[in-house]
Amino acid sequence: MTTTPTRTPPSAAADGARQTPSKPLPRPELKSLTAPYWEAAKRHELVMQRCTACAGWIFYPREQCPVCFSQKLEWAPVSGRGRVYTFTIVHQPAHPGFQGETPYTYAIVQLDEGVRVPTNIVECAPEDVRVDMPVVAVFDDVSVEWTLVKFKPA
């Protein structure tokens, strides 16, 4: 037990060198709602919320279907395949944790199931990313607790 408060984030302290700010990890408003998504990601599986009444896919996760207002929603596996709907190459990130990685690709991927998700395109130089390019999900274990879903060229 320590009595000395520290302002150093744990990951930077472990580096012992420059105090690079950590990247933000997901901060859910309602953990019970989205836990199935993050638990699946940790198993390197992609699941999406689906309405059992109208069969529509939903993202981001909600308590009620925005199409038919049903509250009977389930989590179901998706293909993990899709296409780049649009993208931007970030030179000036909002969060200082990303400073060392610029330029990188922030994208919206439209899954074959029709839903769109914010993500990064990896294993592809930013200048080679194209709208409508086929992509497939990859899983980035960014911490013990969290796995982010990114996409690479299919």
């Binding site: 997901p26 901060r27 408003e29 981001y60 970030v90 990130p93 909002a94 990064n120 960014v142």
Partner: peptide, 11 residues
């Protein structure tokens, strides 16, 4: 904060 910020949007 859950689904956008972790992917590093621009300023």
């Amino acid at each position: 904060s859950e689904f956008v910020s972790p992917y590093g949007p621009a300023i």
